[in-house]
Design a binder for these strands. Structure first.
Lengths: 249, 249
DNA sequence: TCTTATTTTGCGTCTTTTTGCTAGTTTTTA
DNA sequence: TAAAAACTAGCAAAAAGACGCAAAATAAGA
């Protein structure tokens, strides 16, 4: 049997069943396991499949980068996410909210970081899946079309059953007086549940949102333990927040 | 024997069997291996076939595998999804499994169709969000990196609390004798729960998977109410399934 | 037909590729 | 934590390929 032919067979099997065992293929094609191992390694090198311990899996599943390079103030959000990374240590259990700032945090997680991440955001979950050492747990529930996050009673109930070290959340509006507020009532309910399930809550917000408010209240400002903006912590724009017991980064 | 004539023979052999061994051809035509090697090299130069170590393979064989889109057998899967659409009526409550065939079903849902869709697959959920009249409910749980679906005890528990009209599921392997089987134990557990929560279960599978099996069993074949392949329902490949109480589409 | 130029073919030698095996290490699993 | 499975690396045998060369076949012109 030709090498090329064998590799085609391997590829087809992987595409067909999504995953294969090297031993199965070796037996089926009646060649040594080493040969299959070399074939798979080569196909992996050509990005035709992904080699894993003991077998191979199809790329169809793993390669999907929902690159949206149309994010407002991406630079600032990236800065914020970078600062947030400093809070993370191996073994931490965290919750990551939806929104582009939190998505940026997910994107910038170092590949070697060992985490357990809860999220109710589909894009965040997708992004986290690319991090080999991150365990991703999706909080289910009805999914909002606009925010692409699970909301509603079910999501809130699921959140009530978990406890995390840190919650990283975004907000629609934030004000040193009025706290965190939102345009949407359902979102507020979920965010309340998120804050409740966290030992410490970290707010990620670009400075543009400071001193703004809206209809529905998520929480008082001192429900937040750490607030991260793209500004230097000493920036005078942050002065109104210094009266409260908040760590500024 | 003329050189032209010999090269024609080589070409037709390649077309016929998709591949040839240089040694076989040399012996059959009673010329030295060097001659065949030169012929094949020349034909490769003319893009009539592809030369590989030890032989040659037809171009069709390779272009077939050079997937321009990375979904294997997308055409067939699309056909299957089209057929599945016929089962759906406004107001239905369904579950959609992970996998590329089910993803294709989600993709092809008409925008005007009014549905409630449960899913444990992140890509399917994302796709369903683009359908204005579909209510999407994500079944949460730990998310598998390979399949990008929620699995594990939590997902199974969540599934135990819902009841849907139809479950559309895929499978790794299906056989009329051995039923539906999978490579992965965790996936089997989830699929069992999916079948349990559905009044009727619809299996979507390309015909290439028929008569294949693997280690872990999801269910007997008669746990499936409807099986949809890309084949015509009267196709003889489906005969083994006619003995069971399955509707074929 | 004969001679000559050109192409094609087969052979020998040497290099490269492929493959299976062994030994030692790492990863997974129970 | 120990056994089992999988991985890595290196080696050697066998198969395949490259290349030069000379013989054979073919073509062409006198």
């Amino acid at each position: 049997m030709l090498k090329e032919e064998r590799q085609q067979t391997i590829l087809s099997e992987v595409e067909l069943h999504n995953r294969i065992l090297l031993t199965d293929i070796a037996e089926a094609l009646d060649v040594s396991i080493d040969t299959i191992r070399r074939d798979v390694k080569e196909l992996d090198g050509d990005h035709k499949l992904r080699k894993v311990h003991g077998g191979a899996i199809s790329l169809g599943f793993t390669t999907n980068s929902t690159r949206n390079n149309n994010i407002y103030r991406l630079e600032d959000k990236s800065t914020i996410a970078q600062k947030a990374l400093a809070l993370l240590k191996d073994g931490a259990v965290i919750f990551v909210d939806g929104g582009t700032t939190c998505l940026e945090l997910a994107r910038l997680l170092p590949t070697e970081l060992d985490l357990t991440c809860f999220t109710h955001s589909l894009p965040v979950a997708m992004e986290l899946l690319t991090k080999p050492n991150v365990t991703v747990i999706m909080v289910g529930g009805q999914v909002s079309k606009e925010s692409q996050t699970a909301i509603g009673a079910n999501a809130i109930h699921n959140l009530s059953e978990i406890k995390v070290d840190y919650s990283f959340i975004g907000t629609g509006y934030v004000d040193s007086q009025y706290g965190l507020t939102e345009f949407d009532w359902d979102i507020v309910q979920v965010k309340k549940a998120v804050i409740k399930c966290a030992k410490k809550t970290v707010l990620l917000s670009i400075s543009e949102k400071l001193n703004s408010q809206h209809r529905y209240k998520t929480c008082e400002i001192n429900a937040i333990n750490t607030m991260i903006t793209e500004l230097h912590p000493e920036n005078k724009l942050l002065n109104p927040f210094r009266e409260h017991d908040i760590r500024l980064l």
